[in-house]
Design a protein around this nucleic acid. Structure first.
Length: 434
RNA sequence: GGGCUCGUAGUGAAGUGGUCUAUCACGCCUCCCUGUCACGGAGGAGAUCGCCGGUUCGAAACCGGUCGGGCCCGCCA
């Protein structure tokens, strides 16, 4: 029976078998330490028999082995137990030296990210890298648990879609049996349609963005959390949902994965259950006053303003997550609800200096929606939109939701400098492999 | 798309005109080492200094081009 590294404590005194990858060899003459990596972590094997060590001569890190031995309690060993009198069986020999080291942290300097991603296949075996994606997996789990608890249904919507789904972002076009299809830049229209079915839905899926952006916060394939909720009693319900989700997910992550976060020198979490809310106009004003740089004419927050307001609320209100509300109507999408005063019923959630979510109330009134579509130059009869408006014609309640950048959340939670570091195999304007 | 930057063994770095026949650390190979855990010690292999051209008696270094990256702005999530 195979025993995993995380189960060692419950098998002390037994003859056990472990399987995994050679992670590190330390030869001390008459004594050799070998760390074997499996899905739970590392197991230390102690070998005194020279013949057993010789079996590994010429074999590199990454060799897949089975090791049989006696599991003994040993306070000096990591995990408090180690394997003695080991017999090694090589299952998959590896003679090729790994291109990167896996037992020491890899360089994440921006100049070296290209090498990091070129060697991603092996680099991800580095436990420091693994920690990123374990945390990311847990973030995703906590999000799901929060949403299930709040009666949301998880859905999957098409990623191959007709026409330009919602305007705004650049789309990838592709051949679709002789017709033109685009890769979905968001599940926006479908998740609204699904409000008419389930009231509360969410999806975690890739979205494709073809902007020629080359920054630390953009990739061309992004993992989005999309949430949509019907029967809301105003925009506040949407913001509260998003706030409660982020508060719970981050609090749990910091409680349950403090060690891994410490490995990455993640900043302390400074969060309150109620996130500060400022209108965008207020933030422009505060920022302009504080820095002397006039941004009051800007339609959006500048990257510097996003950093500034998060620092400001962290210092003055004890919360590094903050809402920027009442986004300007001039930048409004046709499916947003217009406040009628030059602003839209939409808000951005900023966390640690970056926008991680946009949370608008939708325009659910059929006639108003069609009007707004026409104003935006979108034809409601178009094959990409005709089914969308049908849902409204047959009754959608007041609703709202948010798109949420999961990659950015993982990046900022861990305190990484570039969104790509939080993505297994990132896609950007220069990278399509691995 | 605009601006600014960077490119030296498998990896990370040092070297800004001659002392470079290119330095260091990790990794790799050989040997020593019985409690390592970023083990330690001795030795060794490994780089046409991204590529092309130019300036110069002399170029890893200076100039031009080119290819490949990065950062910021814009766009966007």
């Amino acid at each position: 029976m195979r025993v995993l590294s995380k189960e060692l404590k419950t098998h002390i005194g037994e003859q056990v078998t472990i399987q995994g990858w050679i992670h590190k060899k330390r030869l001390l003459g008459g004594l050799t330490f070998i760390n074997v990596r499996d899905r739970g972590g590392l197991t230390q094997v102690v070998i005194k028999d020279k013949a057993e060590v010789e079996k590994l001569r010429g074999l590199q890190i990454g060799t897949v082995v089975e090791v049989q031995g006696a599991l003994v309690e040993e306070p000096r060993a990591p995990g408090g137990a180690e394997l003695h009198d080991a017999v090694i069986i090589v299952m998959v020999p590896v003679t090729e030296e790994p291109p990167v080291e896996i037992d020491k942290p890899l360089s994440h300097k921006s100049d070296n990210l290209d090498t990091l991603f070129d060697n991603r296949v092996i680099g991800l075996r580095n436990l420091q890298e693994t920690a990123i994606f374990k945390i990311r997996s847990e973030l995703t789990r906590y999000i799901r648990e929060f949403l299930y608890k709040n009666d949301f249904v998880e859905i999957n919507t098409p990623k191959l879609v007709a026409g330009n789904a919602e305007g705004g972002a650049e789309v990838f076009k592709t051949d679709y049996f002789g017709k033109e299809a685009t890769l979905a830049q968001s599940p926006q229209l479908y998740k609204q349609i699904m409000v008419g079915v389930f009231e509360r839905v969410f999806e975690i899926a890739p979205a494709f963005r073809a902007e020629l952006s080359a920054t630390t916060r953009h990739v061309s394939e992004v993992t989005m959390l999309d949430v949509e909720m019907g029967f809301i009693d105003g925009h506040k319900d949407v913001l509260d949902l998003l706030q409660n989700l982020v508060f719970e997910v981050l609090t749990r992550t910091y409680e349950e994965h403090g060690d891994a976060l410490k490995k990455w020198n993640a900043p302390e979490l400074t969060l309150k259950p109620e996130f500060p809310r400022y209108t965008m106009a207020e933030i422009h004003e505060m920022y302009s006053k504080a820095t002397g740089k006039d941004t009051t004419k800007e339609l959006d927050l500048t990257p510097d303003e996003e950093k500034w307001i998060c620092d400001y609320t962290k210092k003055n209100e004890g919360c590094e997550a903050v809402f920027a509300t009442n986004l300007p109507a001039a930048k409004m999408k046709f499916y947003h609800m217009d406040n009628g005063d030059g602003t839209a019923r939409s808000a951005d959630l900023l966390f640690r200096g970056i926008e991680i979510s946009t949370a608008p109330q939708r325009e659910h009134r059929y006639e108003v929606l069609v009007e707004q579509m026409k104003k935006a130059g979108v034809n409601p009869e178009d094959p990409g939109f005709v089914h969308y408006v049908t849902a409204f014609k047959h009754g959608l309640p007041a609703h709202g939701g948010f798109g949420f950048g999961l990659d950015r959340l993982a990046e900022k939670t861990i305190g990484l400098a570039n969104i790509k570091e939080a993505i297994l195999f990132p896609r950007d304007i220069n990278r399509l492999a691995p």
